[in-house]
């Protein structure tokens, strides 16, 4: 019962203090709001980038063509060497016959053309289809495979996709830096808000210490105050995320620019993103107030 009573008292004191220092509270809340809107955009963007990078990664394959004169032992050796490359996730092997059958199934034109060759004359080659763990390293993996004996040609999705993945990953990094900088500014503002509250209540704090209030009893109202500021600051960003993403998704019909970039379905994504925004808001408020309490509340 006693902890609940103390918590109730702390919350009451914290709310009172937010109202008493309204203008400064408002400044902190606004700063948190702006930060969290950018954080929300960063979250939405980075989740989507991750989503479609994963989709692309799933499709990205290195195709390894084996020399025609390679024997079965040679193929086995190539397989062993591919297996040993750390970035290789999995691979499948197709003989030229299987490749031919697959191609014939894919189109009528291929079927008639390929039928003109006997199995011995076939221009097709035995292939390994290799999937990689890290798409960013696909190029070096492809080069490694190419250097293996009896491998004639190596192909992978060079070009557009490669560049896009790189561009998005650098955008992600820049966003992180901006978010971190903004979070720091916000924490600083909250520290100052709480510092003012502490100095406004220094007499009260002194008396609390004299009559035997425990340290946590003295600190708790200030920490809760920071959390309240964070919570209030996350209201607008949550609305922004929810309705903003819904509108965005509707406007682009679920795809950005091309069918390649598929957006994440709004539900339950917007709820998860909102929750993350609220948690970040409360955490930022708590960290700010906790550091102010540590600095200015000499206990």
């Amino acid at each position: 019962m006693k902890p609940i009573r103390m918590l109730g008292r702390s919350i009451r004191d914290a709310v009172k203090s937010v109202i008493r220092n309204f203008s400064l509270s408002l400044a902190s809340i606004s700063c948190i709001t702006i930060t969290l809107i950018i954080v929300a955009i960063a979250i939405v963007a980075s989740f989507n980038v991750q989503n479609f990078t994963k989709a692309i990664e799933k499709d990205m394959t290195i195709v390894v063509f084996i020399d025609n004169e390679a024997t079965e032992e040679d193929v086995e050796e190539v397989e062993n060497k591919i297996k040993k490359i750390s970035n290789v996730e999995s691979y499948t092997y197709q003989t030229k016959k299987e490749v031919k059958e697959q191609m014939q199934q894919e189109s009528e034109v291929f079927k008639t053309v390929l039928d003109t060759w006997s199995d011995e004359e076939s221009p097709l080659k035995d292939t390994f289809q290799v999937k990689v763990k890290n798409v960013e390293k696909i190029k070096s993996t492809a080069l490694k495979i190419e250097s293996i004996d009896k491998v004639s040609v190596v192909r992978y999705g060079e070009g557009m996709v490669d560049k896009m993945v790189k561009a998005f990953s650098s955008i992600e990094k820049i966003t992180y830096i901006v978010v971190i900088a903004l979070v720091l500014v916000t924490v600083f503002l909250i520290v100052n808000t709480i510092k003012l509250t502490i100095s406004a209540r220094s007499r009260e704090i002194g008396i609390m210490r004299l009559v035997g209030a425990s340290n946590i009893t003295i600190k708790l109202p200030f920490i809760i105050e920071g959390m309240i500021l964070g919570l209030f600051g996350s209201i607008v960003p949550v609305i922004f995320t929810t309705y903003g993403y819904l509108a965005f998704y509707k406007h682009f019909d679920g795809y950005l620019y091309s069918r390649l970039i598929e957006l994440i379905l709004p539900e339950p994504f917007i709820y998860q993103a909102s929750l993350i925004v609220i948690v970040i808001g409360i955490l930022v408020g708590m960290i700010g107030s906790a550091s102010a309490v540590r600095k200015y509340l000499k206990i």
């Binding site: 019962m1 006693k2 902890p3 009573r5 103390m6 008292r9 007499r203 009260e204 002194g206 008396i207 609390m208 004299l210 009559v211 035997g212 209030a213 425990s214 009893t217």
Partner: peptide, 23 residues
């Protein structure tokens, strides 16, 4: 004295007990 000017006499005295979580 070190009293809190915004609290009444009763509240000032009660403050000491509230701080330690009394009912």
């Amino acid at each position: 004295y070190r009293l809190l000017p915004k609290l009444t006499v009763y509240e000032n005295v009660a403050f000491a007990l509230e701080c330690i979580g009394e009912k």
